[in-house]
């Protein structure tokens, strides 16, 4: 039996959504005087139970705002669960959705150093990985250019190359592959399979069912913050297509 890497029990996440947040003092005072409370509780995840094993590839699918990204962020320990328990073993890769997490004023290399450091790698260790990342991303001299001059595709190349080459125990991919061109996508697939065979666990959020069925052993379908269905890729994707079609 493979080892458990992620165990989630009865996890619930509630966001306090402030409509027209009173970010300024004037508004806050106004709200306070009128005894208006425009806070609303938003149930983002409801009673999630999920166990993921080592070197398993799990796909997360669901409509927009169904809680996929929130779940990834809780696994990455960015958000705290409102209730329930979560136990994650191993190092989680940064979940760079479309590379939006990069610092736009800095060059590719500088961003690699920063994220390497966040991931816990020393400057030296990241420096050793840079040739590898440069080769994989095929970005070449663009690595010395500020990120704001990158296209979406290039950012994604950088984000994936970084995440895949720093040997995380758990790789999180949030709709990242969508903007890659065909040849790079194939390269990513190959890399993911290679990493999987060495024991890495993969969590993939995507709206591309082809991607999901090619990469994932198991698929979890979320709807309104709840797990609607979980099981082998083919089965769940069938259900998902039916569900989306009926909407």
């Amino acid at each position: 039996m493979a080892q458990e890497v992620i165990r989630i029990e009865n996890l619930t996440k509630i966001f306090r959504v402030v409509h027209e947040p009173p970010l300024t003092f004037q508004k806050a005072l106004h709200n306070f005087l009128e005894r208006k409370n425009n806070c609303q509780e938003l149930l983002a995840l409801k009673n999630i139970n999920l166990v993921i094993f080592e070197s398993e590839a799990v796909g997360l699918i669901g409509a927009n705002a169904s809680g996929k990204t929130t779940l990834l962020r809780i696994i990455a320990d960015i958000y705290a669960p409102s209730s329930g328990a979560i136990n994650v073993k191993g190092k989680v890769s940064p979940s760079l959705e479309l590379g939006s997490g990069f610092c736009m004023e800095f060059t590719g290399i500088e961003n690699l150093y920063l994220y390497g450091a966040i991931f816990g790698l020393s400057r030296k260790a990241i420096g050793r990985k840079i040739p590898q990342i440069k080769e994989f991303s095929e970005l070449g001299d663009f690595l010395d250019v500020p990120l704001r001059q990158y296209s979406f595709g290039m950012r994604m190349r950088l984000a994936f190359s970084l995440a895949a080459n720093i040997n995380p125990d758990i790789l999180l991919i949030d709709e990242m592959l969508a903007v890659g061109d065909l040849s790079f996508k194939e390269k990513c697939f190959k890399k993911i399979k290679e990493l999987k065979s060495t024991g890495m666990t993969l969590l993939l959020v995507s709206h591309n069912m082809d991607e999901i069925s090619r990469l994932c052993d198991r698929v979890v379908m979320l709807d309104g913050g709840e797990i609607k269905k979980s099981g082998p890729a083919g089965e769940v994707i069938g259900e998902y297509n039916k569900f989306m079609g009926s909407k």
Binding site: A76, I78, S100, G101, C103
Partner: peptide, 11 residues
């Protein structure tokens, strides 16, 4: 100003 890190990684 560093929200891009804060939202994407835990540290």
């Amino acid at each position: 100003e560093d929200s891009h890190f804060v939202k994407n990684t835990a540290f």
